[in-house]
Computed example of a mutant assay.
Amino acid sequence: MSFLAFLILGLIAGAIAKLILPGRQGGGWLVTLLLGVVGALLGGWLGGLLFNAPLEDFWSIQTWIVAIVGAIIVLLIWGLLTGRRSRRA
């Protein structure tokens, strides 16, 4: 998959993860989309490592599920980190 396709996949996965997760995550939509790209990278890496899944095809359902799950994981971690900061202040 090309870098541009990966970037688009991550942005869309971040938006879908934002819609799936309840509550507020700090940072707004821009941070969420950027975290979606990081989550897609994480999901792709874990998917390839754990399941030995070929994730090169942009239109593969495996690729999308792994990217969205990775984005959800990254958003949950981000929510935990930013939630702790706001409670301390």
Rank of each mutant, 00 (worst) to 15 (best):
Thr82His: 03
Ile77Thr: 10
Met1Arg: 05
Leu9Trp: 01
Leu46His: 03
Leu76His: 10
Leu30Asn: 07
Val38Lys: 01
Ile16Ala: 02
Ser60Glu: 07
Trp45Tyr: 15
Leu11Cys: 07
Val37Thr: 07
Leu4Val: 13
Val31Phe: 13
Val37Met: 05
Gly28Val: 02
Arg87Ser: 11
Ser86Gly: 06
Met1Ile: 06
Leu9Gln: 00
Leu34Met: 09
Gly10Arg: 00
Gly79Leu: 03
Leu42Val: 12
Leu35Phe: 09
Gly83His: 12
Leu46Cys: 04
Val69Trp: 03
Ala71Phe: 02
Glu56His: 13
Leu11Thr: 02
Phe51Met: 12
Thr63Lys: 01
Arg84Lys: 14
Gly23Cys: 05
Val31Thr: 12
Leu49Tyr: 07
Thr32Lys: 08
Leu9Arg: 02
Trp45Cys: 13
Ile65Trp: 05
Leu21Thr: 08
Ala71Ile: 01
Arg88Gln: 15
Ser60Tyr: 04
Ile61Val: 15
Leu50Ser: 11
Leu75Lys: 06
Leu46Arg: 07
Leu81Ile: 14
Gly79Arg: 12
Ile16Met: 01
Ile68Asp: 03
Leu11Lys: 00
Met1Cys: 06
Gly79Thr: 13
Leu81Glu: 09
Pro22Tyr: 05
Gly26Cys: 09
Ala17Phe: 01
Phe58Glu: 06
Phe51Trp: 13
Gly48Gln: 08
Gly79Tyr: 07
Leu50Ala: 13
Leu19Asn: 04
Gln62Phe: 14
Leu50Lys: 08
Leu81Gly: 10
Trp78Leu: 09
Arg84Ile: 14
Glu56Gln: 11
Gly28Tyr: 06
Thr82Asp: 14
Gly36Cys: 00
Ala89Lys: 13
Val69Ile: 15
Leu4Asp: 07
Gly43Met: 05
Leu35Met: 12
Gly27Gln: 07
Arg87His: 11
Gly23Met: 03
Arg88Pro: 08
Ala17Lys: 01
Val37Asn: 00
Ala71Asn: 02
Arg87Glu: 14
Val31Ile: 14
Ser2Gly: 08
Arg84Phe: 13
Trp64Met: 11
Ile61Phe: 11
Asn52Pro: 06
Gly44Ile: 05
Gly83Met: 08
Gln62Arg: 15
Leu80Gly: 15
Val74Asn: 02
Arg24Asn: 12
Ile20Glu: 08
Pro54Lys: 03
Trp59His: 12
Gly44Arg: 05
Ile20Val: 12
Gly47Leu: 06
Ala40Thr: 12
Trp78Cys: 10
Phe58Gly: 09
Ser2Pro: 02
Trp45Lys: 11
Leu11Arg: 02
Val38His: 03
Ala71Met: 04
